[in-house]
Design a protein around this nucleic acid. Structure first.
Lengths: 204, 204, 204, 204
DNA sequence: CATGAATGAGACTTCATTCAT
DNA sequence: TATGAATGAAGTCTCATTCAT
């Protein structure tokens, strides 16, 4: 009755969903197609997920959760705010470039989902927003960033910029490297945030 | 057989679509509902639009076209690059705040559409991107912005930031004024682009 | 949106449902089968009925309504309570014998429906119960039936007996005439109800 | 392979089925729910019953069998036909009032089952019909009941009346006592059957 | 030009039953 | 004997689009 939230089949279904959605688009990814890709019966999906919506939200939670946990850990290691900003952009772009299926699903396909799914996605996304805002806060408190910057607005600029660059890259069919954009994006954002124009040189 | 691209019913259907989608969400906006709101029969929609996809793409084209034409005209009046940037942000946010139905449809609902519709949307959107890039180019060529800025990247930052700020505002149920964000967004973006940190004071 | 409750297709679908359910049984009567029998598309069913449940409840209402209206009218014509009782049994059995499909559906198949449908059926059935109780009341008040008879209980005996006899007949594959049971059933019930054993001779 | 027809788990499953069906309704009583209630695994059901249908038919057989055996025994003790009739009604109503779960399952839920199950039920029910007919026959042969009564018809009246009264009671949510109906039902039926209106006073 | 009744393809989900352990 | 994870067939309903009037 209650959905099992772990197990190798659970993982297999999540991965199959990413692949199927990436290849067929959100609106053409039937449960039966995902089941076939995962090598299980249609009904098995429902032993691990309450329904299709739960599967999609779980997909996002799992993938976003992995990324967020890793990012939070890596950023904590760094002391310098500019270094944190550079690393954030690196992690964001590198993650997407490393898993192009995931990039397609996160940047394009999942955004076509119904409002209810988007609401389920909101929670994990908020956690990522928090991480970005922590970078901004650290910069302000350490004197690296301008003190009068609105933290939420700064987060929106950072995320909005990275998201737009990533979406553009995904839609271009990946005919250039997303990671090549890390440095120029860094300088744009760093200058926007820096106290007195004192931007540290890019280094990850 | 060929769809009429004008007429008062054409306009009525477009406006009805905006209202219905804003009120019901993309996935709950059936052709019959739009027809009823427009005061026409279901079949009449198909005298003016090839199909539902054509209606939605047309909606976007019309609304975006109005905005783009006005924006291009207004920006041409201004000489200073910073003034152009400030005006761009003003126009973008003011447009959305003035027509909240449209804001909801453009920022949230239409993004849930199938890939084919998003492709149809790409054209009109490109025209807006061009306008933004023209502001950037003008800034670089006039010496106001840093010469080594990647113009496409700068456009992605500008659009990505405005878009994220606008989406966040729409999802917040409009409980604050979007136009209050014009000035702080201006300073963030201006600093990112300015040559030697020489940002002109905000003025629209 | 709202279901049309009249029209020749409405009637055709009701009749088709009776036939399909009689021939295939309740649990094997899919909407598509009913639509095919009615000569309409599956979707057309939903222009006339809110859903499958609504179709089945409507079927019962229409058929029971026709019968109830006719019965109430005919019984009003009669003055004598015993004559009313005899006529009631005649109408009940004759109706079922005349339309054997309907008999099968009402006596057997519809009773297999889910609780929600049975609840929808309760209303029209109550009207029939009222008619039976009116016959009993008339008998008591005219002095034909025993004055201390519990009216509800008498109705339950009358209906329960007729229902059981009818069900038994339907399940026997109609290898005898149900209308041959009118007279003997009349005498059983009349004796149960009569004041001082004064039962009038059977006559319809 | 062959199903075991005895054992404490056999009984536990039957009792669990009665409880689950009474509480959830026929169409919401899945095998897994019955298994959980019985404290066994889903698969274990199939060691004791051929399939779900077999379980439901067995439930009916067991419960009806217990009742029928007891009834036959008790009625044999009585010499007088009217006393037998009174006792029959008492046993029928008392059984249902004593076990309200069973009443709900027998009078309402099991009647929603597919035709195949109803056919399986027919056998055990026939045995009860025989007992009722024996009471009628005894009455006729002893001169207590009218000699020209159709025995099958009399049985249908007796059973149909008791069944209708019981169903009505179950559906009323038991807000009155079913056993209070024994005496008035007795008088109705006794008068219908009695020779020359000579009905014996009620006594159980 | 306009109508709106009719069409029919297509997908999510349930649940009785099996079988490897 | 007992388990319970896995199976997979099957049906209701929606809604974009058509076409006779």
């Amino acid at each position: 009755m209650a959905a099992k939230r772990t197990g190798e089949k659970y993982d297999a279904i999540i991965e199959a969903a990413v692949k199927v959605i990436a290849e067929n688009g959100y609106h053409n990814s039937q449960v039966s197609k995902i089941a076939r890709e995962a090598g299980v019966a249609d009904g098995t999906i429902y032993l691990y997920f309450k329904n299709k919506e739960d599967l999609l939200v779980s997909l996002f939670k799992v993938k976003m959760g992995e990324f967020t946990a890793g990012a939070r850990h890596e950023l904590k290691e760094l002391q310098d705010s500019f270094a944190k900003l550079a690393r954030l952009i690196y992690l964001h772009f590198n993650r997407l470039e490393t898993d192009r299926y995931l990039a397609l699903v996160l940047q394009i396909q999942l955004r076509q989902s119904e409002t209810s799914i988007r609401q389920g996605i909101a929670g994990p996304l908020k956690l990522y927003f928090n991480i970005i805002e922590e970078v901004v806060s650290h910069g302000i408190e350490s004197g690296a960033f301008k003190p009068d910057i609105n933290r939420k607005l700064a987060r929106q600029m950072i995320f909005g910029t990275m998201d737009e660059v990533a979406t553009s890259w995904v839609m271009s069919s990946h005919n250039y490297k997303l990671t090549d954009q890390i440095e120029p994006v860094y300088y744009l954002l760093a200058r926007a945030l820096a106290q007195d124009g004192k931007v540290k040189s890019f280094s990850i």
